[in-house]
Design a protein around this nucleic acid. Structure first.
Length: 511
RNA sequence: GCGAGUGUAGCUCAGGGGUAGAGCAUCACCUUGCCAAGGUGAGGGUCGUGGGUUCAAAUCCCAUCACUCGCUCCA
């Protein structure tokens, strides 16, 4: 077992043991790729959401929030391209155990034939000393003409199969063309199976196909279809953004790596609307801005990097990921996409309604272009959790497990601990608890030795431990222990609130 | 989905055809009192689930569910 798997396993166990993440429906042996968040997990998650929302919505006069339904009109998903793009016909080679998209296999085969035509064309050009236009050449050469005919025939068959959802036909075509697996070199294929990444359900009691609904595979479309509602009612002027946090659902064939890839997940998205032609400028702006946001948590500059996309999705003209160094390597945490006017135009077309913005500065109307920033909340959660996990060797030879979660995100901000249960210490500790708990999530604990309680708070990731001792009763001071350094400071009870606030308030992180 | 591996207490794991085990954790009481694992006692498991073989299955066989890793896709 490699080391990172080891660490990752420990993080996963730790997450369960301390009430961060549980497997969904565990008493029924669990449900694949679905997880529940425990008492500490929900606090961390809420803190992440709040940190994002404050910085995106509250700190930007030109960004407003929105919360749209998970269900949307089915046509919305036709317009967005998800009905087509999320439908993958897959086929496995039984010998190499490799999986391919059936349409890609066929297209590659076509590309091979096409390459032969190209070659013939070049050869002929050499022989005759004349440069041929490819189309001309095809019509003049019998052998090449047949090749081109073959390509057309395959294309036509493939299109016909796909439009009739004829998966058997696709397999027949692959066998007929004797397409072989590039790895095993055999043509020992399984049947073609259709995988739709969108979850389907019905509205109303009957299974009438007209009432088929999808669970949204992304939150963005809820924003796009509400573009004019929001723009008009909030009296927004371009450039402006709409932010949303919400669940999305994808029926992933393989969902792995704990909460990194789940079937039900949560996105924090902001769609920023700009005039056509200015999208790449804003794309750059948001790339940098979003990276700064991540860096503000101080989880290590080197743990983030950009990954610019080479091949782009159907809606984008530029795309980049912010990747984080997870225990299993650099993986996507957030995507920044320049989505062009694809989505708004598509909804305009499918709905028959105009979705245009009148720009008084430019004195013209247009369909805005969109820059999207989309971060996986669960991935952010995993990034924080896995980055915070440390097993430390202490000077006295013992070890401790500590979650060095950025204090602003920590589920619990302070633990209030009476040194003993005697001499009125619990009463004093309760008083302190009362004075802090309205502003900070606190925990009172009197069980077990003080050292053990410190370790327990370390394992949860509580940045402060406040201990009430004999001296407290005399001069109203307590010891304040720092989670990361384990250093203790004696301070007066009145100062507690401001010291904790300084360390955990969002305003001290976001610039 | 396919292949390989795994599944025994909250956690980490041992055992293995004949009454279910350890350490840690949990709870109660006592003790100690500033960096966990002191004493006494208690609770907790139909050995992932279902079926089969057997006098007898946690153990062997089959199926199934889940997890880990690989292939594919992605937030």
């Amino acid at each position: 077992m490699t080391n990172y798997e080891d660490v990752f396993k420990k993080v996963v166990s730790h997450a369960k043991e301390y009430g961060y993440v549980f497997q969904s429906s565990e008493v029924y042996d669990g449900l694949a790729a679905v997880y529940d968040y425990g008492p500490n997990g929900v606090e961390l998650k809420n803190n992440i959401k709040n940190y994002w929302w404050k910085s995106m919505v509250n700190m930007h006069e030109n960004i407003v929030g929105l919360d749209t339904a998970i269900f949307m009109h089915p046509t919305a998903w036709k317009a967005s391209g998800h009905v087509d793009a999320f439908n993958d016909p897959l086929i496995d080679n039984k010998d190499s155990k490799k999986r391919y998209r059936a349409d890609v296999l066929i297209e590659n085969h076509i590309a091979k034939i096409d390459a032969k035509i190209e070659k013939d064309c070049i050869k002929a050009a050499k022989r005759f000393g004349v440069a041929f236009n490819k189309e001309e050449f095809v019509s003049t050469n019998k052998r090449v003409l047949e090749r081109q005919k073959k390509i057309d025939e395959i294309n036509q068959k493939m299109t016909s199969c796909f439009s009739n959802a004829n998966l058997k036909g696709i397999k027949n075509l692959i066998e007929e063309l004797d397409i072989k697996c590039p790895v095993s070199g055999t043509n020992n294929w399984t049947d073609v199976r259709q995988f739709n990444l969108m979850f389907k359900t019905q509205m109303g009691g009957t299974a009438d196909s007209s009432s088929d609904l999808y669970l949204r595979p992304e939150t963005a479309q809820g924003i796009f279809v509400n573009f004019l509602n929001v723009q008009k009612t909030a009296r927004m002027k371009i450039p402006f953004g709409i932010a949303q946090i919400g669940k999305a659902f994808r029926n992933e064939i393989v969902a792995r790596q704990f909460i990194f890839r789940m079937k039900e997940f949560e996105q924090m998205e902001m769609q920023f609307f700009v005039p056509p032609g200015e999208e790449l400028k804003w794309y750059q702006y948001w790339k940098e801005s979003r990276m700064k946001w991540h860096q503000s948590l101080k989880m290590g500059e080197d743990n983030y990097r950009f990954h610019d996309h080479q091949s782009l999705a159907h809606y984008a003209n530029a795309a980049s990921d912010i990747e984080f160094k997870f225990p299993f390597g650099f993986k996507e945490l957030e995507g920044i996409h320049s989505r062009t006017d694809f989505d708004l135009k598509a909804h305009q077309k499918h709905s028959g309604r105009k979705i245009i913005y009148y720009d008084s500065k430019m004195n013209k109307s247009y369909v805005p272009y969109v820059i999207e920033t989309s971060i996986g909340l669960d991935r952010m959660f995993l990034a924080v959790l896995s980055h915070s996990f440390f097993e430390e060797k202490l000077e006295n030879g013992e070890s401790r497990v500590v979650l060095k979660i950025p204090s602003v995100l920590a589920p619990l901000k302070a633990a209030i601990l009476p040194l003993t249960k005697k001499d009125g210490m619990p009463k004093k500790a309760r008083e302190i608890m009362k004075s802090l708990q309205i502003d900070f999530n606190c925990q009172y604990e009197e069980k077990d030795s003080i050292g053990k309680r410190y370790r327990r708070q370390d394992a949860i990731g509580t940045p402060f431990s406040i201990t009430v001792d004999h001296q407290t009763l005399e001069d109203n001071t307590v010891t304040l222990r720092d989670r990361d350094t384990m250093n203790q400071e004696r301070i007066s009870v009145e100062k507690l609130h401001s010291i904790i606030a300084e360390k955990v308030n969002i305003s001290n992180y976001l610039v």
